[in-house]
Design a protein around this nucleic acid. Structure first.
Length: 473
RNA sequence: GGCCCCAUCGUCUAGUGGUUAGGACACCAGGUUUUCAACCUGUAAGCGGGGGUUCAAUUCCCCCUGGGGCUGCCA
């Protein structure tokens, strides 16, 4: 059975980098027809917060990344490390290692390494490795705080990375590592191993920043008598300055993308393309299709810069492919600011259909919509064309007898232009300005239809009056 | 400092010894359009440097350079 997992620590919101890691695991699990598991690594009690956990969970759900096992899914076991710690799981395995002589009590004080920046290569001496049972008992009796260290084997560890091939580390360069802190909590490297082992994880896809943790985890797996999973390390996402995208470097949370009007499908698609490519170079790919082709063999090794322009384009592709009704259904928060009594639902959907082509983000809606809701049009002298006034007056008169649909108005306008021998653009421009005081905007006839005859004629009248006042006649 | 990873247009990438080095975003030009956008067409733009191996290197090896990561009783 194939089992992959995403194991975030709730010490921050779900940001673009960890969302991508989750997505790669999810997609690869689906590609292999396996299970995808969500596990919360909350052993850092100081920095973990419930609100972050909620943000991560809701962010994943919003993106459409669903887990087969994990929080919110019925199960006998917990997928929170804190719970598992309370059940004594880590302690049990730790005890096993101590008994087998593979781990030991360490009474050394916590190292302070930040004094001398040049002396960075620090390695624990292994001082407590050789403590006798008596000394250990004595120290415990004296209530000297202790941690448990894992005896690192001084060997070369080689593993075959799913995306990079063979990677080797000389473990003689590492000191023994702490697996249980003096406060009784397991450290990351120990807890992941225990959990991945217990949960029978077969493949671990994670960020490149974990490469150097891998040999340590492999040794712990071996010490526990289990085979480690396959590891695949994906590249990092970089900011426009090519620095690692982190919270302080403008790594936006998924919630922010949502609030800014991005569609989950588009973000999902975009993230899948960041460090992976479709065998046929496709760019717009739906989730269901991704699941059938998402092979790790097509994951690229180098870091990638986050390119917001492409995300915007992709978002527009998705948005424009939707019906106006669907857009209406998903954009309520961007519609909230508008006076609902002005139009009914059907009219609003019609308006959305009119402005749809101008949309990249859901958040573009308010700007595009504004012209339909303004009650006051304020003209400016410099945009006025006095010489066109007689023509506009005539145009407006003809409008009064029309059935007020965009098709009819369009036909009328075409004939009007022909009969009066004027340029199309002139009439369009002036009418647009008269009814909206804007130089540009949505398709004119559709806009007129939405406004309705009464409002259109009234505004044109106002405009004519304004121009006449301006000209001082 | 030590260890590890990486290196194709501005950006995301295809490419696994012989290609006119392909696509996408952005850009620029043209078309279409009442405007803006969208859309269509086209242009421009790239293998970091130096050594090898080979009849032949973007592709394989080494060095340099550059970028990134790790070097915690954080994850």
């Amino acid at each position: 059975m194939i089992r992959l997992r995403f194991a975030p620590s709730p010490t921050g919101n779900l940001h673009i980098g960890s969302a991508r890691t989750a997505l790669f695991n999810y997609l690869y699990a689906k590609f292999l027809k396996g299970k995808f598991i969500l596990r919360i690594e909350d052993t850092d009690i100081l920095r973990s917060k419930k609100e972050y956990e909620e943000d991560i969970i809701s962010g994943l759900k919003w993106l459409g990344i669903n887990w087969d096992e994990g929080p919110g899914v019925d199960s006998v076991q917990s997928y929170y490390q804190l719970d598992r710690w309370k059940q004594g799981i880590y302690n049990q395995y730790c005890q096993q290692l101590i008994e087998e002589g593979k781990a030991y009590y360490c009474f050394c004080e916590q190292e302070e390494k930040d004094k001398d920046p040049l002396q960075l290569s620090y390695k624990y001496s292994g001082k407590c490795r050789t403590l006798s049972n008596e000394q250990i008992k004595e120290n415990i009796a004296k209530k000297i705080p202790y941690a448990i260290r894992f005896k690192v084997c001084e060997e070369v560890v080689v593993f075959r990375d799913l995306v990079r091939g063979d990677i080797s580390f000389d473990m003689a360069l590492n000191g023994d590592l702490v697996i249980m802190r003096s406060d009784g909590m397991p450290t990351y490297n120990f807890a992941v191993v225990v959990d991945d082992m217990d949960m029978q994880i077969t493949h671990v896809i994670r960020g490149e920043d974990h490469i150097s943790n891998t040999p340590k985890q492999i040794q712990i797996f071996n010490a526990l008598g289990k085979t480690p999973p396959a590891y695949g390390h994906i590249s990092m996402i970089l900011g426009p300055d090519k620095a690692k995208l982190s919270k302080r470097h403008g790594a936006k949370s998924i919630t922010e993308f949502k609030n800014e009007g991005y569609l989950p499908e588009a973000l999902f698609n975009f993230l899948a393309l960041l460090g992976w490519s479709h065998p046929e170079d496709k760019e717009v790919i739906f989730q269901e299709d991704l699941m059938t082709v998402y092979d790790m063999a097509r994951v690229s090794k180098s870091n990638s810069v986050f390119n917001i322009e492409k995300l915007n384009w992709l978002n527009g592709q998705y948005l424009r492919s939707y019906t106006a009704e669907h857009i209406y259904n998903i954009s309520s928060e961007f519609l909230d600011g508008f006076n609902k009594s002005l139009y009914n639902k059907d009219q609003l959907i019609y308006i959305l259909d009119v402005i749809k082509e101008n949309l990249n983000l859901l958040s573009d809606i308010p700007t595009q919509l504004a012209v339909f809701f303004t009650t006051q049009v304020i003209y400016e002298k410099e945009h006025v064309q006095l010489e066109m006034i007689p023509m506009i007056e005539k145009f407006e008169q003809g409008l009064r007898d029309l059935e007020f649909t965009s098709e009819v108005i369009s036909e009328y306008t075409n004939n009007f232009v022909k009969e009066n021998n004027i340029k199309k653009g002139q009439i369009f421009h002036n009418v647009r300005y008269a009814v909206s005081a804007q130089q540009k905007g949505p398709s004119l006839f559709k806009m007129l239809q939405v406004f309705g005859k009464e409002k259109v004629c009234q505004r044109i009248g106002n405009y004519i009056a304004y121009v006449k006042t301006c000209s001082g006649s």
